[in-house]
Amino acid sequence: MAQDEGALHDFVAGRRTALFRSAFLLCGDRDEADDLVQTTLVKVILGWRRLERLDNIEAYARRTLMNTFISSRRRFWRRERPFGELPEQAHPGVDSDLGLSVRAALSRLPAKQRAVLVLRYWEDLSVETTAELLGMRQNTVKSHAARGAAALRALLPTEALVLQKEAA
């Protein structure tokens, strides 16, 4: 049991930053992302005894993060910030012009579409795994991914796309 506890500690410590980055993409706000990750990891700690293998914990953590995020968008105002406050809070090392524009554009997408984009393109998961994690049909995932990517590009100001090309 002590060995299992050790593995859980390692998992929590090792996955925290990766989960935070996905959460940051979902929320667009560092404080909210921190809260989301903390909530997720506390749920993982509370529920890990029901999970038999470490890869189950990985999937459970991702699913919990996404579900907590999506349901937070139906919840109390404490979980929401006025959009206007999001892109202007600069943080060293994070906020390139392109980054700000993308986060602003992401915040305008529906929560489920954002979740699909993050899982498919950021976490690089397959359509099948994404569908399973979000409890969606695979066709729905494909459609969210295509529409989300198109909407993201459409919402970005032209200058941001120029910046992206220059950076490439």
């Binding site: 925290r16 930053t17 935070f20 980055r21 940051f24 993409l25 560092r30 404080d31 992302a33 921190d34 990750v37 903390q38 943080h91 090392g93 994070v94 906020d95 390139s96 392109l98 980054g99 993308v102 986060r103 992401l106 984009l117 993050v118 393109y121 950021w122 690089d124 990517a149 993201l152 970005l156 992206q164 950076a167 490439a168």
Partner: peptide, 18 residues
Amino acid sequence: NPVRDLLGAAVGTAESGA
């Protein structure tokens, strides 16, 4: 993957402030 690049730009080097 241009979408991944865009998401990467949005994340930057963000670290948890917790």
